[in-house]
Design a protein around this nucleic acid. Structure first.
Lengths: 197, 197
DNA sequence: GGATCCATGTAACGGGTTACATGATTCG
DNA sequence: CGAATCATGTAACCCGTTACATGGATCC
């Protein structure tokens, strides 16, 4: 039954899945994929294949039950639910895993860092694109916020993470706007500083 | 000589290393480790073993030259330098790789999302810890900024990424402060809303 | 009736992590 | 004179990604 070797050490994604199951609904891999995409995706975003892998492991560890459901007009599916042991495991992880600042992993910032190797105008263009993407991310967040505020059950903790996202997007957009002003435009490139024609 | 099969597709870390070499200095794996730790670490942070692996690959691809240097009082080392082909490769990557918003990958936010499963007081404690860590990160950033502003050669693009980091840290700290006010403290837990003692 | 989307998964690869290994130098 | 740190790297593992596979329902 998978027990017997102490608590297995699991990757964060396993706890993300377990946490999702801990809201009480029985869910399939597909459900979990959708659920993460529409909620924690901004700060945690496993591939679906990873979700399936974690589900299998959680079941083997005794942290989740698996139940096969036959369907006629669709592929059969497996529904998972958290067990008491699984519940304990998430709680332990939540309580005991250390708080630490992880790296942002932004290839965009990496590119800005090396932007002296770019042809004139390219950083500007890419930053504009980045700004736009951040803009629609912010829109999405604000839309979700409206739904949350309109709903009866506020789910405060998820809402907190949303507000983090809103703050993040706003600060990134501010940064873009301020930075783009500083960037030398094509015309001014190569002029000596202070030489106002 | 590693050429001949078109441009190989390389992971971002390869370009991070190549970009570092493109500042012109000959560097060892150790040097690169130190250099990334003290600059791009906030948004890109390869393990040193990964750096060594990428260096080998860059050399095989003809993007970097390798030169073994014997040392008496220390282990021998290999110094790498970017080749013209390597220079072209970074430039292509910088120009052509798409701009996209990657996920933040924050286990801390993941934990906040599931905080309803935590015992009373635990989120508060962890958020305080997070805030503190963000605080010292901001300190570090501001310290670096002072150095940059005092220096003669401003390296504008790296400075821009630093300012992104400063904005990020500030917004995260703001979020902590605002959120911690909203969090029910131990005493108030379980009270009906609106009951002002 | 062809294309796209919904819904379910599996398989293989590799980037990146953790752990290991070594020896000089400096510090208490 | 033992411990910690500097400085160099190697080896193995596994998480997570990309690509593949299947078939009904729905849209144009």
């Amino acid at each position: 039954m998978g027990a017997g070797s102490g608590e297995p050490k699991l990757p964060p994604t396993a706890y993300a899945v377990l946490g999702m199951l801990s809201f009480g609904r029985e869910m399939s891999g597909y459900d979990l994929q959708k659920a993460t995409e529409s909620s924690v995706r901004f700060f945690w975003s496993p591939a679906k294949s990873q979700i399936y892998a974690e589900l299998r492991r959680l079941q083997e560890a005794g942290y989740a039950t698996e139940r096969e459901v036959a369907q006629t007009d669709r592929p059969d599916k497996r529904l998972y639910a958290v067990t008491p042991a699984g519940r304990t495991a998430v709680e332990r992880w939540l309580a005991e895993s250390p708080v630490e600042l992880e790296t942002i992993r932004s290839t965009f910032l990496l590119k800005v860092f090396f932007a002296h190797l770019m042809a004139p105008g390219v950083v500007e263009k890419q930053m504009a694109e980045y700004r736009e993407q951040m803009g629609s991310l912010l829109e999405t967040f604000l839309e979700i916020e409206r739904h949350i505020l309109a709903a009866d059950n506020p789910t405060p903790y998820p809402y907190m993470t949303l507000k983090f996202g809103i703050g993040y997007a706003r600060s990134a957009i501010d940064w873009c706007d301020r930075t783009m002003k500083e960037l030398p435009t094509g015309r001014e490139r190569g002029r000596k500083k202070g030489g106002k024609r």
